[in-house]
Design a protein around this nucleic acid. Structure first.
Length: 564
RNA sequence: UGGGGCGUCGUCAAGCGGUAAGACACAGGAUUUUGGUUCCUGCAUUCGGAGGUUCGAAUCCUCCCGCCCCAGCCA
């Protein structure tokens, strides 16, 4: 089912205005070509999802194309593992680049040729300063830099040196190729930026073919040009690079796309920088890139988020130039919204409390009908077994209930969903005074959940028949960080990790129909939240991940009461 | 103190000279065999600040203030 086409039109934003204007004036011959250019040096996260939705979204909206291009110009950091995961994630999100999959490394020959062109035009030179010297010569934010003594080598000498760089005659760092622009430029990026460096490192695609590699500013604009990209959409931190982007293409006098910058996504209670994400993985703070607490696409996928909900989220946050921090509650809302319509309901008890119905026959089992999804009549109904011994949620019983607690308590009558009204008659406790078992009676007249005499109860509880229950492990996830913006907080961002971000409940009891559920299947556990069968789940040890809780008014009331 | 950007509700975000959309969050209420869903209702006399132009300004001008980015042979 392609839900993408059903997505309603996104709200207006400044980039659409630009594209619409270009369409009107016939700029780029009415074409719209965008690109998503990840460097294969890490896993994609929800910040990338925004960029993917923006780029593929505009392409689709205007009947154009969006290229997937791997920006693989730094062999030291890049690996095939990452290109595989990136492709999987983009597809999973629901986007298709069709035949347009490219690698910057495919352009190495062309790039090299353009570099020689620049040299011949006197617009690039081989510099032999050390990295430290280059830094010193660059000047500072307020002081101009000074020119390298090698800046005025002849074109012939530069060409010779550059060819010998390529031939491997020099060691790493001995020479670089630099653009000859202006060492006094107020934009530091224009102070003779480095175009090529020597790196005697094997590349994941080109192997040993090269020992010099082009840098981003030289590669990106030319790659866009080669691919006839029209609108090169990137994040705000590249605003300073635009001047250089334009400079290179102007010197080369080749096709010239327009670079447009928008704000990257920041999400509360998590981090979205590759460096920090890598640190979480390598530091063992999470179980891996696809740990369900991670904001990576693979983490969200394993957790149970749907691609549709992530797309909806990206549409709702909009596209603008303002630095912002989006409330993660909006992401929660987007999944709930979708799963409410799509997920079948089921009953599962996370923290079991035994209940014995004293007046219910010991040898009896009834099959009760339960509706699969009240939001979707076509989802039908199922049978759920009921018997004398049940489990209910510990939180659904209180011996000394406060004012607004409507659930089970001594002497109180409540409804068991789709079953009967029961009344608690006795509480059996352990030596610590902890309730271990409830003795109850049921009213046979209330089968199905309605009392013929019209009497009401204030609560309906979920339950599972003890002898029929499926034992399972359930993993609850909470915010990875305790603070809204860990990157801005004092100390190391890892100081702010939430010690309770993962809670494993090893002894849960679920209704038997769940035995059929396979990895990736999602359900609403009534009154609790949405859950997804984990990829490591097995018949002998079913594992469910909590995607997100249901909205919980009772929890709010409790919190308010606590604050007093 | 150089250059490039950005400042509209708690959080995102429309608005582009005609008198502040929408969403999330939050707060009430109704319906409910999920304290879920759904449904109502409320929530910026004001757009970083101060001046100015105009019949009229969030939108135009001036000055000021605040925040972000740039000194990798990373992207």
């Amino acid at each position: 089912m392609d839900l993408i086409t059903k997505d309603s039109a996104p709200p207006p934003n400044f980039i659409r205005y630009i594209i619409e204007e270009d369409q009107k004036t016939g700029r780029f011959d009415g074409r719209v070509v965008t690109r998503f250019p990840p460097e294969p040096n890490g896993y994609l996260h929800i910040g990338h999802a925004k960029s993917i939705c923006v780029n593929f979204g505009f392409a689709r909206e205007f009947g154009g194309a969006c290229h997937l291009r791997f920006d693989d110009t730094n062999p030291a950091k890049e690996e095939v593992e990452y290109v595989d995961s990136i492709q999987e994630d983009v597809h999973w999100l629901g986007f298709d680049w069709g035949p347009h999959r490219y690698f910057a490394s495919d352009y190495f020959d062309t790039l090299y040729g353009f570099a020689e062109t620049l040299i011949q035009k006197g617009k690039a030179y081989v510099d032999s300063l050390s990295p430290d010297q280059i830094r010193e010569y660059r000047g500072t934010l307020t002081e101009p830099g000074k020119e390298s003594p090698y800046r005025n080598r002849s074109a012939a000498e530069n060409l010779d040196l550059f060819r010998r760089m390529r031939a491997g005659e020099f060691a790493d760092g001995e020479h670089v190729l630099r653009a000859k622009i202006d060492m006094a430029a107020p934009n530091i990026l224009m102070r003779d930026p480095t175009l090529y460096r020597i790196r005697k490192t094997a590349h994941h695609r080109t192997g040993e073919a090269w020992c010099i590699y082009p840098l981003y500013d030289f590669t990106h604009c030319i790659s866009d040009s080669i691919e006839r990209v029209t609108h090169s959409l990137c994040t705000l931190e590249f605003e300073n690079n635009r001047e250089l982007y334009d400079w290179v293409l102007n010197q080369l006098e080749i096709y010239h796309p327009q670079q447009i910058e928008f704000a990257r996504l920041n999400l509360s209670y998590t981090v979205l920088s590759k460096r920090k994400l890598i640190e979480l993985v390598r530091g063992g703070h999470v179980a891996g890139w696809d740990d369900p607490r991670m904001p990576t696409i693979s983490g969200l996928r394993r957790r149970g988020y749907t691609p549709e909900s992530i797309r909806t989220f990206c549409k709702r946050i909009g596209v603008a130039k303002r630095d912002s921090m989006v409330d993660i509650a909006l992401l929660d809302y987007c999944v709930r919204e979708e799963l409410n319509k799509r997920a079948n309901r089921v009953m599962g008890v996370l923290r079991p409390l035994k209940v014995v119905i004293e007046n219910y026959p010991e040898d009896r089992t009834e099959e009760l009908e339960a509706i699969n999804n009240p939001e979707d009549p076509s989802a039908g109904a199922r049978q759920v077994p009921f018997s004398r011994e049940l489990y209910i949620e510990r939180d659904d019983f209180m011996e000394n209930p406060p004012k607004k607690f409507f659930r089970l308590a001594p002497g109180r009558e409540v409804r068991l969903r789709y079953a009967y009204f029961i009344t608690c008659t006795d509480v059996i406790k352990d030596e610590n005074g902890e309730a271990t078992e409830l003795r109850c009676t049921y009213d046979p007249e209330t089968k199905g959940g309605d009392a013929p005499d019209g009497r009401k109860v204030k609560a309906t509880l979920h339950w599972v028949s003890a002898p029929h229950a499926l034992e399972a492990e359930v993993r609850l996830f909470n915010h990875l960080f305790l603070t809204e913006n860990p990157s801005a907080a004092k100390g190391e961002f890892t100081d702010h990790l939430n010690p309770d971000s993962l809670e494993i409940l090893p002894d849960c009891r679920l209704e038997p129909s769940l035995a059929e559920a396979g990895p990736g299947e999602r359900f609403q556990f009534e009154r609790l939240g949405y859950f997804c069968v984990d990829k490591a789940s097995a018949p002998d040890l079913p594992i469910f991940n909590r995607i997100v809780t249901l909205r919980d008014t009772w929890a709010k009331i409790q919190k308010k009461a606590q604050k007093g």
